[in-house]
């Protein structure tokens, strides 16, 4: 399994390059927002990938609680780790976009961005929890339960943030420009595929590293 990783990584890098090329050169300029709209091709795929990673982490957590197989613990943790990294990137790219189109670094008017901030804090607490528990099945299960709370929190928070707009932010920013053209949509799909693949490669690399680490520790204990 590890042997296929360099090939996959090279493919992901190539696809990322293609995505960036399409986003910067080929896709037509947005009539409304101009060049700043191009961050969309990076920002939205990263955000979707972060959701996907959180979902994967929760799915592995569910499998852990269901089947009790220890290996799901590491898989769940690594997926959430990647999700948090991509979540941080979403906040950064979203902030850059907000600066370019609304002239502020942060806006409470963008539901998605606020949701990501809440999720980011939530998943940072996941790491705090994980690293302050003793290693073992109980830690695995507590982390899994917390990861499951995360995926339930996503829709509930989204609903709450939508409702909160009524009293916190009566005017809603609309970032929907004109309908996406075919080229724009194609560019978006390539970027999305590239970022998803990149996340998958990172997930596999980290997982392989963590497993090697655990195996090595076991070996060392046997040898001593």
């Amino acid at each position: 399994m590890i042997r296929s990783l360099p090939g996959l990584a090279a493919f992901a890098a190539g696809l990322m390059g293609l995505g960036i090329f399409l986003a910067l050169i080929v896709a037509p300029e947005d009539a409304d927002q101009g060049i700043s709209q191009r961050v969309f091709y990076i920002h939205v795929p990263i955000a979707l990938t972060a959701y996907f990673c959180f979902g994967l982490g929760a799915w592995k957590a569910l499998l852990l609680l269901w089947r009790g197989d220890e290996r799901y613990d590491l898989e769940s943790y690594v997926a959430i780790h990647q999700g948090t990294i991509f979540g941080a990137l979403t906040l950064i790219t979203g902030s850059i976009w907000a600066r370019a189109s609304w002239d502020v670094w942060w806006t409470w008017g963008s539901n998605q961005l606020v949701l990501f901030l809440v999720l980011f804090l939530f998943y940072c607490a996941y790491f705090m929890l994980r690293f302050s528990l003793e290693e073992g099945p109980r830690r695995a299960r507590s982390s899994a339960v917390y990861a499951l709370f995360g995926v339930v929190l996503i829709p509930v928070s989204f609903l709450a943030i939508r409702l909160a707009e009524d009293f916190i932010h009566p005017t809603v920013f609309t970032r929907e420009g004109p309908q996406m053209t075919g080229t724009m949509f194609a560019t978006f799909c390539v970027s999305w595929a590239a970022v998803t693949l990149l996340a998958y490669v990172l997930y596999r690399v980290e997982l392989a590293g963590k497993r090697l680490d655990a195996d090595l520790r076991e070996l060392r204990e046997v040898l001593q």
Partner: peptide
């Protein structure tokens, strides 16, 4: 130290509902 970190992000929907 850990408890507020775990609970506060989860209370945000409650905050919205209560203040609303």
């Amino acid at each position: 130290v850990l408890l507020p970190l775990l609970v506060l992000p989860l209370t945000i929907p409650l905050m919205v509902g209560g203040v609303g």
